[in-house]
Simulated assay, not measured.
Amino acid sequence: MAEVNKSFDLITVNAKNMDLPNGKITLKVSGKEIDTSLLARIMEPVYSYLNDYRKMAINPAIQKYDKQFEGMSDKKEVEKLAKLVNDELKKLVANLEKEAQNRIKASWEKIKKENKEYTKWKLKIAANITWGVVKIGKSIAALVASSGAKLDEYYKVAKSVYSIAKEVKKAIATETKVREDLMKALEKMAKATKDGKVGKSHITKVEDTVKEYKVKLTAARQKASSMAKPLEKLLQLQDEGVAVTKKQEAAINNMISQIIEFNTTEQNGRKFADFALKKAQDAQGTLDLKTIKAHAEKVKKAIDIAIKVFEVAADIL
């Protein structure tokens, strides 16, 4: 009895980003009357088919997916692609056992037409595939691990930014309150001036409120500036591959812009305070509230924007 028992490698390419399985198909064909040379003729077209299928379907698919893994670091995305790869490759080899057996039978049927004696002979045909699971390579696993650590660091820094953002909001709110207190003191003084009852106590109240207002301005600016380093760290982690949402990215950029803008806001606030103090000290019979209010309104607009930016950012982060 002649017999062919041959294992055929289904994968003949290397992968950079995947650990490939030991993919083989084992063909077993035997016949009592058939000699080895006849068996070789029967198997030749089957080997040719398997070689073409490997060359045209399996190897290109592996190379395509290997390229898709290149540089990936997001764990969920890597796991998602790994499942897709395994599902697709399983589909490619799912019918090979049956197809190989059918092609052996077809080849034998064709040869039997050459000699009627062959029709009396019987073949035993079997095909078995060995196929494992494609796994991500060490380089991608390292990227995923690194990205995971960076993601943990991102959320840790973002949490601190969240806390600071809430403190900034409070600091800005105190500026709003004292600015309103200053305007009330000025309005009270203006009324007293108009009635001819202005006294030193009115100017003292304005002077004291101006001092407090400048302190609040400084505190708000310092608190906002304290966010600069953690925000810079968030951007660095983003550059290193940590995935952030578009809202988070916009929030970070808005806060950075607002921190820079806050220097101008503070300067305008001080100009408003100095102008109000000078007008109060120089007041003789009338107090120019209209111009003072114009200065205050300019500061208010900037402060309102700042409050919104840090409030929204805190919620998003």
Rank of each mutant, 00 (worst) to 15 (best):
E232R: 01
Q248P: 01
I260A: 13
E266Q: 10
V206W: 01
F262W: 01
A220H: 11
S226K: 07
A228H: 10
L217S: 11
Q238S: 11
A220L: 12
S257R: 13
A220S: 15
L217A: 09
E212G: 01
E212Q: 12
F262Q: 13
E266C: 00
S226G: 11
I256K: 13
Q258A: 13
E212W: 00
E249K: 12
K233Y: 05
I252F: 04
K229R: 08
A220W: 08
K247N: 14
Q238N: 12
T204V: 08
A228P: 00
K223N: 14
Q238W: 01
F262C: 08
A251Y: 05
T245Q: 06
L237C: 10
N254H: 14
T265Y: 06
L234C: 03
E266V: 12
I256C: 00
K214G: 03
A251G: 06
Q238C: 02
E207P: 00
L217D: 11
S257I: 07
E261N: 14
I256T: 09
V215L: 10
T209M: 04
D239Y: 00
Q248R: 09
Q267M: 11
K223I: 00
T264V: 13
L217W: 02
N268R: 09
Q238T: 12
S257M: 12
E240T: 03
P230S: 08
L234E: 04
Q238R: 09
M255P: 07
M227T: 07
I259V: 14
L231W: 05
K211C: 00
S226V: 04
K229I: 06
A243H: 11
I260T: 14
T264W: 06
Q236N: 13
Q267G: 11
Q258D: 15
L217I: 05
A251R: 05
E240K: 07
T265Q: 05
L231K: 06
E261A: 15
T204W: 02
A228C: 01
L231Q: 08
N268V: 01
E249S: 12
A243W: 02
A224L: 08
N254C: 06
K229A: 14
I259E: 04
K216V: 02
K246L: 09
A219M: 05
Q267V: 14
I256N: 08
N263A: 13
Q222S: 14
N263I: 11
T245P: 07
T264D: 14
K247T: 12
Q238K: 14
T209A: 04
N254P: 03
L237V: 05
I256V: 12
A250V: 08
I252R: 00
A219W: 06
E232Y: 05
N253L: 13
E232V: 00
K247R: 04
K229W: 04
L231D: 09
E207K: 12
K233M: 03
K229P: 05
E249W: 02
Q238G: 05
N253R: 15
T218R: 13
N268D: 14
E266M: 10
S257D: 15
N268P: 04
E261C: 07
N263K: 13
Q258M: 15
Q258T: 15
V242E: 05
S225D: 15
A220G: 12
P230F: 07
F262Y: 10
N268Y: 07
T265R: 04
Q258L: 08
F262V: 03
T218W: 03
T209I: 01
P230G: 09
T264R: 06
N268A: 02
N263P: 03
E232N: 10
